[in-house]
């Protein structure tokens, strides 16, 4: 599944907010890469800089310094509309809050039609409707029930599935999943995660999970990057890090996260 071709590489990526004394190095000299068909996690607690890294990769925020290289091309300072559209055809995202990810004034049909604009302007209405129905079915939703609904009429799990359907319509090479299940109940979480992992098997999509949930990162990812105050403190094979953490921060993290088979000394 994982191919040896590199898809995305970031080099010495840095983002500083504010200036002078109140300066914050949200992302501090971060370098990593992800291969085609690979699933990785940027794992960190709040304030670790993981979400800023995601926004930098998505070109929602310009970096202070460093490079982002996608399929061998430096896209760090790409800014023309045409080039950005091309990039977003290849790199997409789903976000944490399945409610605020939706414009409440749009029906689900409109949300998905908007996504198709990115694919091609010249698809007929009937074709679009067909494509939309197909992706809804593949994320386990009934198109007839869902299409004319508004986001607030659906549960969090259903809304996140629609965001997945949106990704399926665009079918990017890389998906940035920013805490995709942290606001979803345990019973729906498994479904969303399994669907996400299915994207790799079916389309060879690479996924970057941005998460604080070590269990999730371990379950889904091939490799982990542990972030703390803007820096990557440990990286490597997921199994290896969980069984044998090297960095002190990672060790502490693994010690404090509640697990089932080893009970805390309190």
């Amino acid at each position: 599944m994982v191919e040896d071709r590199e898809l995305l590489r970031v080099e010495n990526l840095t983002r500083i907010f504010g200036s002078g004394k109140s300066q914050v190095r949200a992302v501090d000299n971060v370098s990593f890469s992800i291969k085609e068909g690979e699933i990785v996690s940027l794992l960190g607690e709040s304030g670790s800089g993981k979400t800023t890294t995601a926004r930098l990769i998505l070109k929602l925020l310009p970096p202070t310094s460093g490079k982002i290289i996608f399929r061998g091309k430096d896209i760090t300072y790409v800014s023309s509309r045409k080039e950005l559209l091309n990039y977003w055809r290849e790199v997409q995202a789903i976000f944490q809050d399945p409610f605020s990810s939706f414009n409440i004034f749009y029906s689900i049909r409109r949300v998905l039609n908007n996504a198709l604009r990115l694919v091609s302007e010249s698809i007929s209405r009937e074709e679009r409707e067909e494509m939309i129905k197909e992706v809804l079915l593949s994320v386990g939703l009934n198109p007839a029930e869902i299409l004319d609904k508004r986001p607030y009429e659906l549960s969090g799990g259903q809304r996140q599935r629609i965001m997945l359907a949106r990704v399926l319509l665009i079918r990017p090479k890389l998906l940035v999943a920013d805490e995709p299940t942290s606001m979803i109940d345990a019973s729906s979480r498994a479904g969303i995660l399994n669907l996400l992992m299915e994207l790799r098997n079916a389309y060879g999509m690479s996924i970057i999970f941005i998460t604080h949930d070590i269990g999730l990162a371990y379950y889904t990812s091939d490799r982990l990057f542990i972030m703390n105050s803007g820096k990557i403190v440990e990286e490597g094979d997921a199994e290896e890090i969980i069984n044998n953490p090297k960095d002190d921060y990672t060790k502490k993290l693994l010690e404090d996260v509640p697990v089932i088979h080893r009970k805390w000394e309190l």
Partner: peptide
Amino acid sequence: SVLVPEPGMKQKKIEAIPGVP
């Protein structure tokens, strides 16, 4: 459906509860 970082978790497939509350 609990996800915890414990050896063996990765091999297990977690299942969703069908339907919605």
